[in-house]
């Protein structure tokens, strides 16, 4: 099997999702030697571009040059994968009215949300793709991962925690540090809306309180029940 041709691109963003790849210090050289890297401007000055099997795109579309790059990459790529909450949901640029998620402009084949994405999430997606498979989708919310870790519930302690409605995959990082989930991974693929509403109501919150929090990372998208990632 020939090496998949991949490109890694950044639109308007903090470059955090591209940095997560560069932060895979133990795996970086192996991963890069298992693919035919056609573009990664942040890391190399040799970018032959051309046709791609998979393009990873970080960041929101905030300006014409973002859109031009995105459209060009889409036409050259078999699969286009949105990496990070800005690309998937618009992130902070969306809230300020300056940016939109890339799916508003081009077809997105797969999404890896997170602010930033998790190393494991990225490596497992890369590994699936290198072997000709599609990455797994994680349907469960942060709340489930938090429960598995047996953390004490912050909602119960009176904090607004976005865990019940936020996409899992981070291992409940914030609540495990005694900090409420901010919803940085965007809405969960399949949240149990009724159950979440009940839990929140029990602690004196309206589900809208959580949406207001979630809006920081996923704009108005989070308030649409059943809006799906990926």
């Amino acid at each position: 099997m020939s090496k998949p041709r991949i490109g890694i691109y950044g639109l308007t963003s903090c470059a955090g999702d591209q940095l997560v790849l560069l932060n895979c210090e133990d795996e970086l050289l192996d991963v890069l030697s298992a693919v035919d890297l056609r573009s990664f401007v942040m890391a190399t000055s040799q970018n032959p571009e051309g046709e791609l099997d998979v393009a990873f795109v970080e960041g929101a579309v905030t300006q014409d040059s973002d859109l031009e790059l995105l459209r060009d990459v889409r036409t050259r790529s078999k699969l286009l994968i949105a990496i990070g909450t800005c690309a998937v949901w618009g992130g902070i640029p969306y809230l300020s009215g300056r940016g939109v998620p890339i799916s508003q402009h081009v077809k997105v084949d797969y999404s890896l949300p997170g602010c930033p994405i998790e190393k494991k999430q990225l490596l497992s997606a890369l590994s699936s793709l290198i072997h000709g498979d599609l990455p797994l989708k994680l349907p469960y919310p942060v709340c489930l991962e938090c429960t598995i870790r047996e953390n004490s519930c912050l909602l119960q302690a009176g904090e607004i925690c976005c865990g019940p409605l936020t996409a899992g995959g981070c291992g409940a990082r914030c609540p495990s540090h005694n900090r409420p989930c901010l919803g940085c991974r965007g809405p969960s693929l399949d949240p149990n809306y009724q159950a979440a509403t009940k839990i929140l109501a029990k602690h004196g919150y309206d589900v809208e309180d959580v949406h207001r929090k979630l809006a920081l990372f996923s704009g108005t998208n989070s308030s649409k029940e059943g809006r799906q990632v990926g």
Partner: peptide, 21 residues
Amino acid sequence: FEGMRGFESVVLGRSYAEVPA
């Protein structure tokens, strides 16, 4: 020529506790 993300409009009016994140 990085695009602007408008952090200014996001922190204004928000609580001090949200600023660092």
